[in-house]
Design a protein around this nucleic acid. Structure first.
Lengths: 231, 231
DNA sequence: AGGTGAGAACGAACACTGTTCGTTACGATC
DNA sequence: GATCGTAACGAACAGTGTTCGTTCTCACCT
């Protein structure tokens, strides 16, 4: 009994009071430094020097916390004021992906989050504006933003999983080499193209491929027929 | 002690032996009917009339099981033999999305799964073949398959989350109406476009938007400059 | 000043989870 | 028929999210 002597924490002087913002901020910090599996209610509470039950005053449940964290993370997205519409879209989406990737695991959660949060809406607002600059009609712009958002979330999620794997000991070269070996081991009779194209399939850095993909989507959007008309 | 009398199950006649395939199949059945949160090791084991520990002979851990389930689900993808290259790609991707959507929650898991499983590779093989028919070079085809796969997983994941929400009582109209209300409640000074374009942003069925999105990507791919050249 | 009530904070508990351990039981081999 | 590798198993461990009932605090009112 010499070590614990649980002095009621209430007695401690000037403990910063809890708040939704504080909890979300701490959650993001934990997520960034220790990953999604470490983001437990108890872990967040411990960081705030309290118990898990106390969090439920400000947060409905863990999902609610995650959604709030997604929105908070998206506050870091920057919006360029000059440049062509393509440059604007690329800059916005790049910083969006970066914001989601920085906190490992958030991207997967963001896939579920409705775009109905303040900061997610702000991203949408600026993307629509940039797309409209290209001259497309409103419907194309609206659906285009949807498509871009889907791509951004998925790209961030993929990047996250990739990073997680790297953090778990599998270095990049090992990982690519393993896939290369797998492709090489496939029966050329069943998988002729994959077998023969494996070096071209695994080439290019993640950033190069991401930039190419976003470019493809942007080109496709401006070239797309108006939704509703004959496709 | 009158109620349990745990007769060793070994004594029961002709119990079908376990196997990796059986476990994966049961897992898919549970996932399809009860969703991801119900897919626990104990639940799968119970379905097989055994204990959770017994599964670990055939499955490394829950993630291993999920990856195997993704591959198994992708066995349902169909590959058309006739039609234009666009029709082939659309048919393949549609059945891929359907296969991932049918088992709620698999899509999210598939985002992490490397495309290094037999059936995922088969999808890739056929997609590359279809893309090459369009006349694009090998590098464009390879990266294009990547992009299409990313889109397919993300679309299935989004669809899954949407369905999950619908299953949890929120009917479709409620959900859309809620988003509409949220957009309407946004400050028009900060979100002018979203505020004024909300009906156009929420229009169209999920299928229409998905078809449009895939079309945009296909158009973008054939129009894209060869990766590596100046973008 | 003294009392009071709303609600934040809390500890303990519940019903679960994935996974491991040591032991039992079985079926093919010698 | 004895043996032995290994599949199958029950029990346990260290966690998880969440809820319950209680304690404490502090702004407000008499």
């Amino acid at each position: 009994m010499t070590e614990s002597t649980p002095v009621s924490r209430r007695a401690r002087p000037a403990k910063a009071p809890l708040s939704r913002e504080t909890i979300v901020a701490v959650g993001l910090r934990v997520l960034e430094s220790e990953g999604m599996s470490a983001l437990t209610m108890r872990r967040v509470a411990r960081e705030l020097d309290t118990g898990a039950a106390s969090l439920y005053v400000y947060v409905d449940n863990r999902d609610d916390l995650l959604v709030a964290m997604v929105d908070s993370a998206l506050a870091a997205v920057v919006y360029p004021t000059s440049g062509t519409w393509q440059e604007k879209v690329i800059a916005i989406v790049e910083s969006q992906v970066a914001a989601l990737t920085r906190h490992r695991g958030l991207a997967v959660a963001s896939m579920g989050a409705i775009p109905a949060s303040p900061n997610a809406s702000l991203v949408g607002e600026h993307l629509v504006a940039a797309l409209l600059e290209s001259g497309v009609d409103k419907l194309t712009a609206a659906w285009g933003v949807d498509l871009i958002g889907l791509w951004a979330s998925a790209t961030a999620a993929e990047q996250t999983i990739y990073d997680e794997r790297a953090a778990n000991g599998l270095v990049e070269v090992d990982y690519l080499q393993r896939i290369d070996e797998f492709y090489g081991s496939l029966d050329p009779a069943v998988y002729p193209l994959i077998h023969s194209m494996r070096e071209v399939m695994l080439g290019g850095s993640g950033d190069e491929r991401a930039a190419w993909g976003l470019n493809v989507i942007l080109n496709g959007i401006v070239a797309a027929p108006v939704p509703g008309d004959a496709i």
